[in-house]
Design a protein around this nucleic acid. Structure first.
Lengths: 186, 204
DNA sequence: GCTTTAAAAAGTAAATT
DNA sequence: AATTTACTTTAGAAAGC
């Protein structure tokens, strides 16, 4: 008997921070090899790290958004690399900038196929959005923890909207309980 | 004070004109889709509710009108696909779908997922298929849905495949292309669903 | 609202081979 | 007809239109 909670994998972490210093993005784009900056499209400069793999959006205000990391540690490592790169360019960066995790996207496997039509009605149409003509996943908004879960016919699920690592685990335990309570899990 | 009065009258007139425009658009699209008058009434009620709940702000009148009509068709059990509705609207399909999900949530419409069987009579008659094919297609849908094949699948593609399969079984064969055209799906989708359904029926 | 970034799920679609 | 590429949905931040 495998526990669905054990199948949880973090797929993406979004975090924000700031170096407490205004930046000249035009100049930075010149000095940072590999940087993408198209102010007509988007006000942020895009910089990608290879190890760990992540993408950072750097703004004129000095605020930074980091996405694509596979763990919270990777977020810190990737941002640490960026801070050092900036310091190397004689840009003053705060000693230990606060990093706030804004969203964690995880995937998991419930181990059984799901009847999404029955689930839509069982979980309550008021909390569910299931429009297979538009998207194959059932969208379920959970209150505690406050996350959004996408459920698929294969039993694979995506948990997003949480800020803590524990949110995904709690969400999986909760959704399994509710589905079992409805007698809709294998 | 006089300015305020005039302002109120002006905005009231504008609102009235907008409502009239929305209702006439619903009427026009409903006629083009060939849905009965009762559905237009339901769509009008949904639109007025959206207006009262202030859901139009930030959205186009056309978009909300179309979404209200799409919702009304479903509520009345004679659904149109988003593609079909988009064909008679001047709003892109993506926006219709997005607006529908929004007003559906905000108004608490709680509409159940579309049943593929509801497309069978219309698609089958457009293909000039007999009553026998229709009931066979319905049976195929019931059996394969019961075996869990419907989860996540587009109801139009599911119905199209069942109609195609039924036309073969009843010796009234239509090509995948013919069925795909009336259902507005691709032949690839029909092939994929068809294979699964045939297996579920115990054939092959 | 939109723009950009990343990632998963599964279905659908279009372009190539 | 098989492969590849791409788009649909969810969340969140950033600055600006």
């Amino acid at each position: 008997m495998t526990n669905p909670a054990d199948s949880i994998e973090i797929q993406n972490v979004v975090a924000s921070t700031g170096i407490g210093q205004e930046l000249d993005l035009e100049a930075l784009a010149e000095d940072l090899p590999g940087a993408d900056f198209n102010p007509d499209n988007f006000p942020g400069l895009v910089y990608r790290t290879q190890e760990p793999k992540a993408a950072a959006l750097i703004f004129r205000s000095g605020k930074i958004v980091c996405t694509g990391a596979k763990s919270i540690d990777d977020v810190h490592d990737a941002l640490g690399i960026i801070f050092e790169k900036l310091r190397g360019l004689q840009i003053p960066v705060e000693d230990d900038p606060d990093i706030t995790v804004q969203n964690i996207v995880s995937s998991a496997d419930l181990g059984h196929n799901l009847n999404l039509n029955a689930l839509a009605i069982g979980l309550g149409l008021e909390d569910v959005e299931y429009e297979p003509e538009q998207f194959p996943g059932l969208v379920y908004r959970m209150d505690e923890p406050e996350v959004v879960i996408l459920l698929f016919g294969s039993g694979k699920i995506v948990i997003t909207g949480g800020k803590r690592t524990d949110d995904a685990e709690e969400a999986v335990e909760e959704i399994v309980e509710r589905i079992e309570g409805l007698g809709l899990l294998g | 004070r006089l300015r305020k009065w005039q302002e109120r009258i002006r905005t009231k007139d504008a609102g009235e004109r907008n409502l009239q425009f929305a209702l006439s658009e619903i009427d026009r699209m409903a006629s083009a889709l060939g849905v009965p008058r009762s559905v237009r009434e339901v769509a009008s009620v949904i639109y007025r509710r959206a207006l009262n709940e202030d859901l139009i702000r930030g959205r186009s009148i056309e978009g909300v009108s179309t979404a209200a009509l799409y919702a009304a068709c479903r509520q009345e059990g004679i659904p149109r696909s988003l593609d079909e509705v988009a064909d008679v609207s001047r709003v892109p399909q993506k926006e219709i779908g997005r607006t529908y999900r929004y007003i559906s949530q905000e108004l608490g419409l709680e509409l159940k997922p579309v049943d593929p069987k509801q497309f069978v009579p219309r698609f089958a008659s457009a293909l000039q298929l007999s009553e026998e094919v229709q009931s066979k297609a319905t049976e195929i849908i019931d059996v394969s849905a019961e075996q869990g094949l419907l989860s996540g699948k587009s109801p139009t593609g599911f119905a199209a495949a069942a109609i195609y399969a039924a036309s073969l079984l009843c010796n009234e064969k239509k090509t995948q292309r013919e069925v795909a055209d009336v259902a507005q799906v691709t032949e690839v989708t029909i092939r994929n669903r068809y294979q699964e359904q045939i297996e579920a029926m115990g054939f092959r």
